[in-house]
Simulated assay, not measured.
Amino acid sequence: MDVKIKNLSLTYGDFTAVKNLSLEIDNGESLVLLGKSGCGKTSTMRCVAGLEDPSGGSITIGDTAVVDADRSVNLSPNKRNVGLVFQSYAVWPHMTVLENVSFPLRMKKAPKSQIRAKALETLELVGLAHVAHKGASMLSGGQMQRVALARSLAMEPAVMLLDEPLSNLDARLREDLRVELRRLQVELGLTSIYVTHDQGEALALADRIAIMQDGRISQLATPEETYRRPASASIAEFLGVSNIFKVQPASPLDMRVRLAEHDLEVALDTADAMLTGDDSICIRPEHVRVASGPAPAGPNTWNGTVLVSVFQGAYARCTVQVDNGPAIDVHADVRDLAEFHQGDRVHVRLDPHHVRLLPQHAPVHDETVPVPVPQGV
């Protein structure tokens, strides 16, 4: 079912966790709330679940208003038909796997003849039918989280709510379960709200990503748009972009800016770029090229010295101190950077097309007003 959140607010005393937030989630859509700790993402999800009492606004699931502050409507969690999967595994250790998954069906007073069949069918879906009669305490962490997921799926929820369910697992298992969660969400057509601070999870699991800052949505976009076109320097920094530098006007006629802390000009390739007075340029490390020898003539080509070169498995990371400029991170194929060592003289090149000019902060997102997104790279 679709979910409509309108002007949602949540306060704790003098602190406002969610500030007048509006958002619409389509039927079958996977929306990820992404942000730092304390940004309001979990509080928003808990309001949808019925675990918090909003201070204002409304939430509608399908045709049912589950929250409407103006009409004093606030349905209890058990009347909302939402599935919940938390960071902790939250399985009952004294029950078998089958009993854990059957529990919500018993609470809904489903016919006994259907409970076992539905529970086994759901365990088959998550790949745990072979451990149905094992004690839940005998399972691995990944298996326990699958049991928690199966328990929520068995009740056929209108909306699935997941609060950082993979954060307690090791890296390899997290990656495997990301793929599994996405498969199930698409295969079952589940409307889901997923909360995380991990951008990798967000990119893997979302149809759209809502980036939250200070209780508000700062950017709402597809994973590709979010990755390629962050709406502000603060968002780009949160997404892991290391090359972010404050700038000031240099030569607007030929689209150049000057780094605020270095005597270095950078050429842009965005015809409609506008300086707001508190701007930065954003350069993804994978867009920088490094090579031996002095810099040839051309825009954004600078001499420098290798500070460090580190093997990272799928790629190598190199940091180059640009002459009269900043230290720039470079991500490249291991073979391209294998020859470089600390102290080597090199030059770096950057296509102006890959330089993003961004304001420090994005405007507050409003579902009713399209938010302009800076031009892509």
Rank of each mutant, 00 (worst) to 15 (best):
K112I: 04
S113A: 14
S113T: 15
I115V: 13
R116Q: 14
K118Q: 15
E121T: 10
L123F: 01
L123Y: 12
E124M: 00
E124F: 00
H130L: 04
V131Q: 06
A132T: 13
H133P: 02
H133V: 04
K134R: 15
G135M: 07
G135H: 05
A136I: 10
A136K: 10
S137H: 14
M138E: 15
L139G: 12
L139W: 12
S140Y: 11
S140W: 10
M144K: 15
M144E: 06
Q145P: 05
R146K: 14
R146M: 05
R146Y: 04
A148S: 11
L149K: 02
L149N: 10
R151K: 06
R151E: 00
S152Q: 08
S152M: 05
S152V: 01
S152W: 00
E156W: 00
P157C: 00
V159P: 00
M160C: 07
M160S: 06
L162H: 01
E164S: 03
L166G: 08
S167H: 08
D170Q: 09
R174E: 10
D176Y: 13
L177P: 04
R178H: 13
L181M: 12
R182E: 05
L184N: 07
Q185R: 03
Q185Y: 00
Q185L: 01
V186F: 00
L188F: 02
L188G: 03
L190N: 05
T191Q: 00
S192V: 03
I193C: 01
V195Y: 02
T196K: 02
H197S: 06
Q199S: 03
G200C: 01
A204L: 07
L205C: 00
D207Q: 05
R208E: 01
I211P: 00
M212A: 10
I217E: 11
S218H: 11
E224R: 15
E225W: 08
T226V: 15
Y227A: 12
Y227K: 10
A231G: 15
A231L: 07
A231N: 04
S232C: 11
A233R: 13
I235W: 05
A236I: 14
F238N: 10
F238P: 11
